[in-house]
Each structure stands twice: as structure tokens, then as C-alpha cells.
Design a protein around this nucleic acid. Structure first.
Lengths: 212, 212
DNA sequence: ACGGAGGGTGAGCAAGCGCTTAGAGGTGCC
DNA sequence: GGCACCTCTAAGCGCTTGCTCACCCTCCGT
């Protein structure tokens, strides 16, 4: 019904800060189309149609279809990185910081699962230089999670024989939420975040102490 | 009894039982192309070229491009299901059966990560009836894993407050191996399988399976 | 009142897409 | 040899794709 994003707080619609209005509508349309059908299966006519304009109007705001994907992928990756960096730099024990990182990272992937699906699973369609740029952000995300786990191992709070492998597993588990999460499903983003935080603490051998 | 494909040569080829030779070459070419670029980004000319024949030759063995994907997706899903069903029906404690399921499931996804990537991430491109068929196999896989976890909970060997959620998480973790695994990486399929079996046992609270 | 600017449109182009067709070559059976 | 059969190719058809272009609106400072 109401396809217009109200954008008072920017909480529900993650692209509320884009101007002009038509450009924001295009990004929202592209996110939904890319998430549902994939980048290569969606046409510029489909994106423009969802945004309520003619195919040619797309090119007033974006040079190519790939530039739309790049905008979504870049901003999305930076938001995801900030989430784990904030958890890494916060006060608290390694277990608290890891649980915080997983909880908020997963919550973001569930709440914005359309955006996250494009961010995490369509980056292969990016042009080479854009792809390299995004890969650098992903490596930073991996490094942030790994440093939390390393802190826990050094402090004797975690039991992790293979830190690299555990980091890959934890991130993989969280990222994949974007693939299977369904807004009409039985779990809310908060519930999945809490569940996953507990599962990850067990994976790193930090369970049993601070949990009743 | 041997569910594994015939291994005529020294190398493990997951599609060795397809005849004639040209059809097998087409499936192999399609698997590599779909895995690298995605279904919608690969052309029939690309597939035929990789198989060493002209574009028209594809249509002697397969009616459409989608039928190729369907063949790959269907057979792949059935193989993955058989792996977890065998573990579910084997003798042993729930912890041993869950570890077995995860180890062999993950090993398959790593060893055949090209095929598995197509199987797990390109099913959205299937025609509706083929998609429904494949979804049914996925539900069976989910049910098999869940029944192992339920057995463990009933036996008091696992500590899992949310069986459905844990099942989704375990399967998601294992499936996503196909996305990130790289044959040139530092881990072998066996190593990843062992690592993941241990991680999953911790996730379900069966960490002390060695000690009573 | 009016000219310029920028957001928007209908029509359409060149290229590439999935797929088809007419026919060539090899092989085995009578 | 004659014929049917199977595999494969060169050429190309009809259509869709990403993208462009000439032109039309509305708004706005002077």
C-alpha cells in the first residue's frame, strides 16, 4: 500500500538519508529487486517501475545499474563493519564484547535482511575495482571479530584451538542469517540475535560462567 | 549400496555417472560457470564453449538452460540429504550421530564446493515446480538434523532450549561452507569437517562427550 | 514575464540473449 | 550400397537488455 518511506527516524528504512527523493526510491527499489531475484536477473525497467518512474529516469541519478549495486554494497558493508568495531572497542570482558558483536550484527542482518542479502550475496556482480574496495571492508570485519576472539583466548576466557577457523565460522553463521531470515517467520530479529549470541559463546568455549 | 558416484579416474568427479560423455561435460561446464558467475550471468554459449562444443549442441542433451540447473540442483540436494540421513540412521549416541552428520555434510560441501555453491545458492533461479521439488528435499534435510538434536535432548545429552532455532543455525553454518571454502585455502575439507563437528557439539551443549 | 536549470518522458538503438533450423558427417544394420 | 539414427555445427530468428537522445514539464530568481 504505502510504498513511500516516511523517514522520520530512519529506523525502519535504512536508506532515509539519500537525496533527492527519487534517488532514494530507486535505491529502495533496487534493494528489493536484487534481494528477490538477484542482480543479474533484475532489469533496469523493473527497478524504475518499482520506483514509479520511467526506465530512462534511472540514469539521471545513477550512471549504470552496477553503480546502484555499488552504492548499496558499499554503504551496507560499512554499516556492518561499524557494528562489530563498536562492539570490539567497547568496555567489558571478551565474552561480553563477542556476545554484543554477534547480537547486534545478527540483529542488523535480520532486521534489514533485504539489504543484507544484497550486501552479502551479490558482491560478485560488482565491477573489479568496486569489488576490491568491498573486499577490503570485509577483511576489516573479519579482523575485528578475530581480535575479540584473540583477546578472549589470551585472557583464558575462551577455549579456541583454531582462531582463524573459529572466526570464519562465527562470521559465516551470522552472515547467513540474511539468506534464511524471513520477516513473516516465527522469530524476531531480537530473538535471533540473542539465540546466536549464546550459540557463539558456546562455540568459543565461554559458556557456563556468566550464563545461568 | 555405494551412493557415491563412480570414480573412474584418480580424481573425484561428482558427475562421473552421467552419459553420454558430452552431457557430462556440459554438466561440469555448467557447474563451474554457475558457481563462478551465477546462473543468470552465464550464457548458454559460455557453457557450450567450456564443454568444447557449439551453442546448439547443448540443446541435444538438455531442453533448456534451466533444465541443466535443475539436474544439478536435484541430484545435489538428494546427495546432501542422503549424507545426513545416513548419519541419523547410524548406530551410536546422539552426539556421535550429530558429529558424523556435520562432519560428512561439511566435508561434502567443501570437497564439492563448486557443485554445492550452485545447489545451495542458485535454487532461486529454478522454475516454480522444480523449485518446489527441491524445497521438499531441503525440508527433509532439516527434519533429519532436527531429529538427531531432538534425540540428544530427550536423552539428556544435549542442552538446547530452542531445537528449531538450533537446527536452522547448524544447517546454516554447514551450508555456508560452500560459499567461503576455497580449494587453494589453508584448510582441507577433512580439517573443516572436524572443526565444524566440534563447534556444533559445543553449540548443542554436548561439549563433554568424552567425559561423563 | 521569462530564460535557464534540472528532473522527467517516449521512442528507440546496438548488442547480446535463449533457442531453432537445415543440413553435414560418422556409424551400424540390412 | 541404402537407409536410419545419432551427434554436432553454421547461421540466424525473435526478443530483451542496458543505455541514449530529443524533447517536455515545473520551478524560480530577476
Amino acid at each position: 500500500m504505502d510504498a513511500e518511506p516516511k523517514n522520520t527516524g530512519g529506523k525502519i528504512e535504512p536508506w532515509g538519508d539519500i537525496t533527492p527523493d527519487a534517488a532514494r526510491r530507486l535505491v529502495n527499489a533496487a534493494v528489493h529487486a536484487f534481494a528477490e531475484r538477484g542482480y543479474h536477473a533484475t532489469t533496469t525497467r523493473d527497478i524504475a517501475g518499482r520506483a514509479g518512474m520511467s526506465p530512462a529516469a534511472l540514469y539521471i541519478h545513477y550512471k549504470t545499474k552496477e553503480e546502484l549495486l555499488y552504492q548499496i554494497s558499499k554503504v551496507g558493508h560499512e554499516r556492518a563493519l561499524k557494528i562489530v568495531e563498536r562492539a570490539r572497542d567497547s568496555e567489558g570482558t571478551p565474552a561480553e564484547r563477542l556476545a554484543d558483536a554477534v547480537r547486534s550484527f545478527v540483529r542488523w542482518h535480520a532486521e534489514h535482511h533485504m539489504t543484507a542479502r544484497v550486501v552479502q550475496y551479490e558482491l560478485g556482480a560488482l565491477a573489479e575495482e568496486h569489488h576490491a574496495e568491498v573486499i577490503a571492508v570485509r577483511k576489516a570485519t573479519d579482523g575485528a571479530v578475530r581480535s575479540i576472539i584473540e583477546d578472549g583466548v589470551k585472557a583464558g576466557a575462551f577455549d579456541v584451538p583454531d582462531v582463524r577457523g573459529a572466526t570464519v565460522a562465527v562470521l559465516s553463521l551470522c552472515i547467513d542469517v540474511a539468506r534464511w531470515f524471513n520477516a513473516q517467520g516465527r522469530s524476531t530479529p531480537d530473538e535471533v540475535g540473542d539465540l546466536y549470541a549464546g550459540l557463539v559463546l558456546r562455540m568459543v568455549g565461554a559458556g557456563g560462567q556468566d550464563r545461568p
